[in-house]
Structures are given as C-alpha cells and as structure tokens.
C-alpha cells in the first residue's frame, strides 16, 4: 500500500494549519492535522497509530513554536482513543462521527490550554473553542475525500 498519499495528506493539513489568514478568519480554522490523523487512525490502525500521532504532534510543536511535547502528547492521546474505538466508530453514521470529532478536538484544545496555563500565563476566551465546532462540520468532507484516496491506494 502506497504511503505517499498518506504523507501528502498530512503535509497538506500542516500547510492549511500554517496558512496565514486575516484576524477575523483565524478563530474559525478547523484542526486540520487532528482531522486527518483521526481518519487514518480509524481507517488503517495497523499503520497509523500512537507513535505517528506523537511524531505529528512534535512537528506541530516545532512549527507553532510551542513547548516541545505539548501537541505530541495531545496527538498521541487522541490517536490512542481512536485506536480503541475505531471498530465501533467505523460503523457510525457520519454525523455521529462528527460528534466524536468535536469531542476529540475539545480534548486537544483542553490539553493545550492546560499545558500553556501551567507553563506561563494563558487566558482562555470562548472563541478559543470554536475550532471544535468547525472541525466537526468539516469532518464529513475530510472523511469522504480521504476515503476516496484510501480506496485508490489499496486497490493498486
């Protein structure tokens, strides 16, 4: 099974995460990397799992300039949770999966806020949590696109 499209999907997610946006739009940005990670952990748990999640989180830490390990930890936890639940969640209708995505992104944001609060001053406004909502809304689209990609690469 060709790994390149998987890698490319992660790279595109990273690019979308660092894409500069006007102030007003930034708060609505979905948590692209988590979305892509969740999909691949669900679809091919034997290949994409806790360690991949950890590495991705670490790269995000470097890109963001945040504390090394902050997102690494959050991503590995989320990969773990998806790993445990993947069999069941695969059966869920898309909207129910969106709810799960919503909760997982909340978890990501919560862990980040907690670490940043401990490491230094950090004030959480209500807008901080908006990405959970937009991620859940974007999930069906991500799912369909990545599923098509996966079907292409496994059929070859």
């Amino acid at each position: 099974m060709n790994s390149v499209p998987i890698l490319v999907s992660f790279l595109v997610a990273m690019m979308l995460t660092s894409l500069p946006l006007p102030e007003t739009a930034i708060i609505y940005r979905p948590d692209w990397l988590i979305l892509v990670l969740i999909y691949w952990c669900m679809a091919i748990p034997e290949r994409i799992g806790i360690f991949t999640g950890w590495m991705l989180g670490l790269l995000l830490d470097v890109m963001y300039g945040s504390l090394l390990g902050q997102n690494a930890m959050a991503f590995s936890i989320i990969a773990y949770l998806v790993n445990i639940l993947h069999l069941r969640v695969r059966m869920f209708p898309l909207w129910q999966q969106s709810v799960m995505v919503f909760l997982l992104v909340i978890l990501h944001l919560a862990i980040s806020a907690w670490i940043r609060g401990i490491a230094g001053q950090f004030f959480v406004t209500w807008t901080y949590w908006i990405p959970a909502l937009t991620s859940a809304l974007v999930w069906p689209f991500i799912f369909i696109v990545l599923r098509d990609i996966r079907r292409q690469i496994s059929s070859k």
Binding site: I50, W54, L68, G69, M73, S76, A119
Partner: peptide, 15 residues
C-alpha cells in the same frame, strides 16, 4: 495502553 502511557511520559519529560 502501554504505548500511550510511555508516549505521555516522554512528552511530559520533553515539556
């Protein structure tokens, strides 16, 4: 579970 606990511990150490 073991793996995630190890990764969490490693992440905390890094941080």
């Amino acid at each position: 579970t073991v793996r995630v606990i190890v990764m969490i511990a490693l992440s905390l150490a890094l941080m």
